[in-house]
């Protein structure tokens, strides 16, 4: 009778990709993240949900040291990628960001051609030995982002000329071109229409085969649809972290229940 398990999403790999312990983040005097412990699994989509200002984006940005660029921001605690502390002085943030890619809320293609947008990362990281290899990487990345068929005849056209949904998928193609191990997505669909959103969500599900994906989203429905694990943040605390089905059908913490049922937030 158990030969058909409906929820392949219940299956988690159990391999921890990122392990965060007692993470604290301060913006000047503001204590934005308080004592967050979380294990992000490999080949899993993990969603961060919570009301505005709860710290979910801040925490996401800690995972590839994007907060380094903010002067007043201080990060304490330990965040390990495959067991290595990413805040170690020996770690080069640029190399780290090649391993932990990021896609932002608004599509932000470079003012270059579609091809160059995707080829930029592999070029600067020296991932291609010659032009043929580079072209292969670009095609593979665009295919992964489900954009290849739409743009293959106009690779030299400017990336900014694409539609919003296409631009966002271009940014995803750009992010996956460097073969990151983890992909961070900060509200990747908030500027997209429902169809483009569905395409990106389908893409996220496919990316899970190769990457660990962490997505911040304001849409609880989106978190429910795409993720296997969900983390609920509230006022800088990680309130509850668990299997998505459990969070959305039977949350443990009353604050989680109030938030997902639309009673606080």
């Amino acid at each position: 009778m158990n030969d058909m398990t409906l929820m392949d999403r219940k299956v988690t790999t159990g391999t921890v990709k990122i392990s965060a312990r007692e993470v604290q983040v301060f913006y000047g005097d503001t204590h934005a993240i308080k004592d967050v412990d979380v294990d992000i699994e490999d080949n899993t989509v993990t969603a961060f949900i919570g009301p505005s200002g709860c710290g979910k984006s801040t925490f996401l940005r800690c995972l590839n040291r994007m907060n380094d660029t903010i002067d007043v921001c201080r990060v304490k605690g330990s965040i390990k990628l495959d067991g290595q502390d990413i805040y170690d002085s020996k770690v080069d943030p640029v190399q780290l960001r090649a391993r932990v890619g990021m896609v932002f809320q608004k599509p932000n293609p470079f003012p270059k051609s579609i091809f160059d947008n995707v080829a930029y990362g592999p070029k600067i990281h020296g991932l291609a030995r010659n032009k043929t290899e580079l072209a292969e990487i670009v095609e593979k990345s665009l295919r992964r982002a489900a954009l290849w068929e739409e743009v293959k005849d106009r690779l030299s056209a400017p990336g900014t000329g694409l539609s919003g949904g296409q631009q966002q998928r271009l940014c995803i193609a750009r992010a996956v071109a460097t073969e990151p191990e983890v992909l961070l997505m900060d509200e990747p669909c908030s500027a997209l229409d429902p169809i483009a959103t569905a395409q990106v969500e389908e893409l996220i599900d496919e990316l899970r085969q190769n990457f660990s994906v962490v997505i911040v989203t304001h849409s609880m429905q989106q978190a429910a649809r795409v993720s296997q694990k969900t983390a609920f943040f509230h006022l800088g605390h990680l309130v509850e972290y668990g299997e998505t089905g459990q969070i959305f059908t039977n949350p443990v913490d009353p604050r989680t229940e109030s938030y997902i049922t639309g009673r606080i937030g």
Binding site: M4, L6, M7, D8, R9, I195, A198, Q199, E201, E202, D205, R225
Partner: peptide, 14 residues
Amino acid sequence: QHIVSSFDRELETV
């Protein structure tokens, strides 16, 4: 088909 194919799989399975 749905764009999100995992939804189709879940509906089919149930």
